[in-house]
Simulated assay, not measured.
Amino acid sequence: MTLTDRKILFTGATGQAFRPAAEALARDNEVWCAARFTDPVVRRDLESVGIKTIPWVMGAGNVVGLPSDFTHVVHAAPYRGQPDSDTAAQANAVAAGMLMHHCRAADAFVFVSAFAVYKQPPSPDHRIAESDPLGGHAPYAPTYPIGKLAAEAAVRAFAGVLGLRTTIARLNVCYGPTGWGGVPVEFFGRILAGEPVWLPEDGSDIWSSPISTDDVTMFLPRLWDVASTAPTIVNLAGDDALSLREYCTLLARQAGLEVDFVPSAESRQSYASDNTRRRSLIGDCRVGWAEGMRWAIEAHYPNAFTGTPTSIAGKAAVNIWGQR
């Protein structure tokens, strides 16, 4: 489905995963972005490509001046406050419900959740399907799963009550050229700086199904297309299951570097995805992980694989969890 001449609202378009989608859709649609805009440069950059911006704090009340006649909405902004789980649940659930009520006339609504809502799988390389047990597991950010689970519950309720066609997309590891770049870009920066890459303290590996922001952008219209008043739930993940050792080792070798893997409590667990449902609903990815990660890294570190890499000011910054 190609979207043109629609009125689209994004929350979370100031971040890493959905900013490219907002910018792409702004070429042929009226796109709005609601956010805190703590970085005025990002706001100016969004406005420079035709995106209309409006300040918004999650769960703080209705947005004054925000239209209600959007045809499509993607709510990707999370509240990540730590360590207050009650505030995280309240802010995420209330914000989702209020936004859905405000935009209840929309054709379709996408809520971006996360793999953190799933219960820890029986083995690190287990591929998680949408039917796997929920429970939430993110030791690096204990309140994050709670907020996402609370928001998912609110989204399910409001979709049915309002008759608002909705998709809940559970995002896996995402990487791309904007924001902090995602885990692969962050770890390349650590390798480049001679810093260790963290693995679990028990010596196991970390698995994920990384997805490029190019594929997120491609899939977004399809996620709206498959929305339902009994929300469609789908994993938004890359085609391949990868271990952290595998992709870090390959990227380092291609850049002429070496990786120092170190067991640490700072490791951030992620999981591989069973993409059977995603493939049946919205198709396959277009970007292979090796090519996509190189492209994302080069956006943050020019000449990373062809010469002397340099970082770009304002990129490859502290990640969303406040760790380096």
Score class of each variant (00 low, 15 high):
Phe115Leu: 13
Phe115Glu: 05
Phe115Gly: 09
Ala116Phe: 03
Ala116Met: 07
Ala116Ile: 03
Val117Thr: 14
Val117Arg: 02
Tyr118Met: 00
Tyr118Ala: 00
Tyr118Val: 00
Lys119Asp: 14
Gln120Gly: 10
Pro121Asn: 10
Pro122Met: 08
Pro122Ser: 15
Ser123Cys: 13
Pro124Gln: 12
Pro124Ala: 12
Asp125Met: 11
Asp125Leu: 06
His126Phe: 14
Arg127Met: 14
Arg127Ala: 13
Ile128Glu: 03
Ile128Phe: 09
Ala129Pro: 10
Ala129Asn: 13
Glu130Ala: 10
Glu130Asp: 14
Ser131Gln: 15
Ser131Pro: 06
Asp132Ala: 15
Asp132Tyr: 15
Leu134Ile: 11
Leu134Tyr: 15
Gly135Gln: 12
Gly135Arg: 12
Gly136Tyr: 07
Gly136Trp: 05
Gly136Pro: 08
His137Asn: 14
His137Ile: 05
His137Thr: 09
Ala138Lys: 06
Pro139Val: 04
Tyr140Ile: 09
Ala141Gln: 07
Pro142Arg: 14
Pro142Thr: 15
Thr143Val: 04
Thr143Arg: 08
Thr143Gln: 10
Pro145Leu: 02
Ile146Cys: 03
Ile146His: 02
Gly147Ser: 04
Gly147Gln: 03
Gly147Val: 03
Lys148Ser: 08
Lys148Trp: 01
Leu149Cys: 07
Leu149Met: 12
Ala150Phe: 03
Ala150Ile: 05
Ala151Gly: 04
Glu152Gly: 07
Glu152Leu: 03
Glu152Ala: 06
Glu152Val: 04
Ala153Trp: 01
Ala153Gly: 11
Ala154Thr: 13
Ala154Gln: 14
Ala154Val: 07
Ala154His: 13
Val155His: 05
Val155Glu: 02
Val155Asn: 03
Val155Arg: 01
Val155Gln: 03
Arg156Thr: 04
Ala157Asp: 11
Ala157His: 06
Ala157Lys: 10
Ala157Leu: 13
Phe158Cys: 14
Ala159Phe: 06
Ala159Trp: 06
Val161Gly: 02
Val161Phe: 00
Val161Arg: 10
Leu162Asn: 09
Leu162Trp: 11
Gly163Asn: 11
Gly163Leu: 05
Gly163Lys: 11
Leu164Trp: 06
Leu164Asp: 06
Leu164Gln: 12
Leu164Gly: 12
Leu164Pro: 10
Arg165Gly: 09
Thr166Ile: 06
Thr167Ala: 04
Thr167Arg: 01
Ile168Thr: 03
Ile168Pro: 00
Ile168Trp: 00
Ala169Ile: 02
Ala169Glu: 01
Ala169Thr: 07
Ala169Arg: 02
Arg170Cys: 06
Arg170Ile: 08
Val173Glu: 04
Val173Tyr: 03
Val173Lys: 01
Cys174Phe: 02
Tyr175Val: 03
Tyr175Phe: 15
Tyr175Trp: 10
Tyr175Asp: 00
Gly176Lys: 07
Gly176Ala: 14
Gly176Pro: 09
Gly176Val: 12
Pro177Arg: 02
Pro177Ser: 10
Pro177Lys: 02
